[in-house]
Amino acid sequence: MLSKRIIPCLDVRNGKLTKGIKFKGNVDIGDPVEMAAFYYEEGADELVFYDITASSEKRQIMIETVRKVAERIFIPFSVGGGIRTVEDMRQVLLAGAEKVSINSAAIRDPGLISRGAEAFGSQAIVLGMDVKKVPRSESIPSGYEMVIDGGRTYVGLDALAWAKQGESLGAGEICLNSIDADGTKEGYELTLNRLIATNVSIPVIASGGAGKAEHLFQVLTEGMADAALIASITHYGTYTIRQLKSYLHDKGIKVRMNW
């Protein structure tokens, strides 16, 4: 049977990791290529790069990073951040990424999802969703609203409705980030994950809130997620990927233990 995937997320700005990552032994790694190679050896099932480079003229740096990563690691990885057109997608995919992730650009222009899926196949298009809990209302019946700009701007779009629309437009996967849980290390937003995962038939990657191995177990069972995105929980050496996977494996979750 299919394994649940554990996916480290790396934030990159101008070709460097935004936070130098410190491991046990105080090895500081600021180079995304070295970091990708490290996680590849460590047993990550997939990687996500999120490019937060502000200026468009520096996007070429990210493409170069993608190319170097693709020469070193032989597992799927996706790239998000700043992708606004099918041409942007093509550049990233040709440089060696398996998937692109689109977030606010898809909200502004939902047709981007279908154009991307048509050009490269649904398997290459990940719909990134930043979501905040709000009071239920007529326009937000699920009580979860789409937000952009790192959670500062509410867009008046219901998260559940948007997930379903994204699927019907051709997204192959959803990366579901709870802005409320993000950075808390208190666990994933289980209700939100379960709501989306049970209402779409494409895989859902849970994002935001992992602080303990138990949180991954919760979101992969109760939260019904297909994969768990992680960041600080492994970036700072609290756990290794093997430790997380061994924990999940011992609790009966199927994960890839041999790499």
Partner: peptide, 16 residues
Amino acid sequence: ADQNGNKLKVPHMGWN
């Protein structure tokens, strides 16, 4: 569906 009757998603995507 899997052995426990849980619905499986298509495409089959991931590690097996």
